[in-house]
């Protein structure tokens, strides 16, 4: 009962958050120089046509009026129509979600699982040479710009060795049957996923290591050891469970940014995902699409932090919601 009330309260908090996101972004977009109507009509356009576009898109109305009518729309669940493609913003966004989810989801899964596992392992021997090597590599990986890493992977594995395709999500002249198509997508997924998870894995490795080392110094671990539990059981059963808390927090934050966390990777690999869509929308001043994307993102972030808090409560009995 308490939990349900908590969730409802937290969901209600979304409303002011989303409203604030809309207002702030609306103001920011309109502070940026550049005229949407000219961008849409083209440099050669007749002034009368530019005027016509302003009218059709409602750009000639006062700003506060545009803002209020947009807020009204969003409250009815309508994100409007893209300036650029003239298609509903919701359709544009939803069409790109699967590609991004696949890429980011796969990369996140690999980096969390591998990072935590390696971090936990090295934590059991803090200060050893394996620990030093792993920690150094982790920091190095974490500081690699993903754009550069992506290009290097492409040059090595796609241009030189020709093991993998350079970019895209499927072969343009490839198979069309479901099995062939899935294999083809998996084949294209390898490099971008490798680039993303290489950069992310360092973060989870460091996090897991630090958390586990800390927990291993707690008196209750000494007690457990004294009782005679195997060091494997102590590490996995008693230490890791408590060490999961900070990992869940970071994971929650990252899942919130899941949809847009891969703009650069999507650009390097020409991956048809959401990040690139938003990036292009910003370049072309496609206000409804940018706003729509921000609304979706803010909802995602809020949802993810809610879920992270719930998981936290489950993992840590001391936390009362």
């Amino acid at each position: 009962m308490r939990i349900r009330r908590y969730i409802i309260l937290r969901l209600l908090q979304f409303v002011p958050v989303v409203l604030a996101v809309i207002v702030i972004n609306f103001v920011l977009i309109h502070l940026a120089p550049g005229d949407v109507a000219i961008t849409l009509a083209g440099e050669d356009a007749d002034p009368a046509y530019i005027e016509h576009i302003r009218e059709v898109y409602g750009l000639n109305r006062p700003l506060h009026e545009q803002l209020f009518s947009y807020l009204g729309q969003v409250l009815q669940g309508d994100l409007g129509t893209s300036f650029r493609s003239r298609e509903p913003v919701m359709d544009e966004i939803l069409r790109r979600v699967p590609a991004t989810l696949l890429l980011v989801g796969a990369a996140l899964f690999i980096s969390v699982v591998l990072g935590t596992a390696i971090g936990t392992l090295v934590a059991s021997r803090p200060g050893s040479s394996i620990d030093t090597v792993a920690s150094t590599i982790a920091i190095a990986l974490y500081s690699i710009p993903v754009f550069w890493l992506g290009l290097m992977l492409v040059l090595l594995f796609a241009v030189e060795l020709r093991w993998f395709p350079t970019s895209g999500m499927f072969s343009l002249i490839g198979p069309r049957d479901p099995v062939g198509r899935s294999l083809d997508i998996a084949y294209h997924l390898v490099l971008p996923m490798l680039a993303l998870s290489t950069v992310w894995i360092g973060q989870y490795l460091r996090l897991a290591r630090t958390a586990v080392v800390q927990v291993l110094n707690e008196p209750y671990i000494t007690t457990a050891r004294a009782i005679g539990f195997s060091s494997r059981r102590v590490l996995l059963h008693y230490a890791l469970r408590n060490a999961m808390l900070p990992i869940v927090t970071v994971l929650g934050l990252q899942i919130g940014l899941l949809l847009t966390g891969a703009v650069l990777t999507e650009t390097v690999f020409s991956w048809p995902g959401l990040g690139r869509l938003i990036y292009e929308a910003i370049l072309t001043r496609d206000t409804p699409l940018i706003m729509g994307a921000y609304v979706m993102m803010s909802i995602m972030v809020a949802l993810a932090s809610l879920v992270a808090d719930l998981v936290y409560a489950y993992l840590d009995p001391r936390v009362v919601l």
């Binding site: 290009l151 492409v154 040059l155 796609a158 241009v159 020709r162 395709p165 350079t166 970019s167 895209g168 343009l172 650009t267 390097v268 690999f269 020409s270 690139r276 292009e280």
Partner: peptide, 16 residues
Amino acid sequence: RFISDANVARAAFEAG
């Protein structure tokens, strides 16, 4: 094919 980045397009060209 939509490729916005010049480095990416060049790599794809070089990969044949």
